Simulated assay, not measured.
Amino acid sequence: MKEPDPRPDFELMAERQRRFEEDLIDAYDEELEMEVDDRIIDGPAGFTPEHREARRQYFRELFRLQGELVKLQDWIVATGHRLVVIFEGRDAAGKGGAIKRITQRLNPRVCRVAALPAPNNRERTQWYFQRYVSHLPAGGEMVLFDRSWYNRAGVERVMNFCTDEEYEEFFRSVPEFEKMLVRSGVQILKYWFSITDEEQELRFQNRIHDPLKQWKLSPMDLESRRRWEAYTQAKEVMLQRSHIPEAPWWVVQAVDKKRARLNCIHHLLSQVPYHEIEHPHIELPSRVYHEDYSRQPVPDAMIVPEVY
């Protein structure tokens, strides 16, 4: 039988409050770790009072928006809504960082990320959209595409991975494909993250010199840098030919990563008619104890060494 805690109730309550606060801080530390990973606070400029205040405002607004995303998630589950959010943009434009902040507090069973690799030999012979269809949301789900079927309008076009006929067929098909999804009840949001030539070069140089980020650079990324103008032209054609009322494009100014994240999340929330879902009051049941049960010790050999 478990022995009662001899401490007074006020000490127990204070201890419980302290543990709650530690847990809350630990959850926020995850975002702070990401921020350090961005290396934005490095250097003298990162320690000015103005910069510190800007960071405080950023975190304050980010946590508020993430709270709204949780409400959106609850509404999607309650209503069976189906939401697709497409993230496109140049390499190092900040798509992944925005996706991380959106998914950070959400249930991965409700909000999924689809980041498909290059098609294999079998997929190359399928209907172009086929491999994307299996990742579309069911009722009560939200899917974020970290790059999407618009690969054909971007990297495949620039790198000559598709023929002119396949490229033209894509633009004939994609409006009908998206209209069909919208008619079936799938909401589609399409974001293009826009950065300047100079900003991409700076971010690529950062990745080259940061061993924790070098994995983000591929030969394809380096080649895309050389073909900046070809990508610009392909983007302009894509936005012009696939901007439809049912699924319009939205351009996120992404030179400032923090502003881009906040603006994208704020806009996403504004495009969905969600509202807060009331939840029943939750009572934590008392644990059941049995006098004939005694917990067995775990063998020392199974314990992970406490190096830290």
Rank of each mutant, 00 (worst) to 15 (best):
R131Q: 03
E169I: 03
Q200L: 10
A153I: 11
S194V: 01
V182N: 03
P119F: 00
V113F: 10
R203V: 07
G139C: 13
D91Y: 02
D164W: 11
E199L: 01
F177L: 12
R152Q: 12
F204E: 09
W127T: 01
F177Q: 05
L144W: 06
D197M: 10
G89V: 05
G94W: 10
R101A: 13
E178A: 03
E165T: 14
K179H: 12
D91C: 11
R203E: 08
R109K: 15
P117D: 02
F177V: 12
Y167M: 07
L136S: 03
R131C: 02
A92R: 12
V182I: 04
L181Y: 08
V155C: 05
P108E: 13
V143P: 10
S134K: 15
E168L: 07
Q104T: 08
W127F: 06
I99M: 02
N151P: 02
T196R: 14
V155S: 00
A118P: 09
E123M: 04
N121R: 15
A114N: 06
I195T: 10
R105H: 12
V143E: 09
G97T: 04
V155Q: 02
F177E: 01
E198P: 04
E123V: 05
E176W: 06
E169A: 05
P137D: 07
A118V: 15
H135W: 05
F193D: 06
P117S: 05
W149M: 09
A118H: 14
E88F: 09
R109P: 00
A92F: 06
Y191I: 06
A114C: 11
L144V: 10
L189M: 05
D91M: 07
V133N: 08
F193L: 15
Q130Y: 08
A114R: 03
P175K: 12
P108F: 09
E123F: 01
E169G: 00
I99H: 02
V186M: 12
I188Q: 04
V182M: 03
P117W: 02
S148G: 00
G185C: 08
E123S: 14
Y132S: 00
W149L: 12
Y167V: 00
R124S: 01
F145E: 09
N121P: 13
R105I: 04
T196Q: 08
E169H: 11
K190F: 15
F170P: 03
V110N: 08
F129A: 06
F145D: 04
R172W: 01
R124H: 07
V186S: 05
T125K: 14
A115E: 08
F204T: 10
Y191K: 03
R147E: 01
V158N: 00
E88I: 07
F129G: 05
W192L: 10
F145K: 03
K95P: 02
P137N: 09
M180F: 10
R112P: 14
R147P: 00
C111W: 05
L202A: 15
L116I: 13
V113R: 13
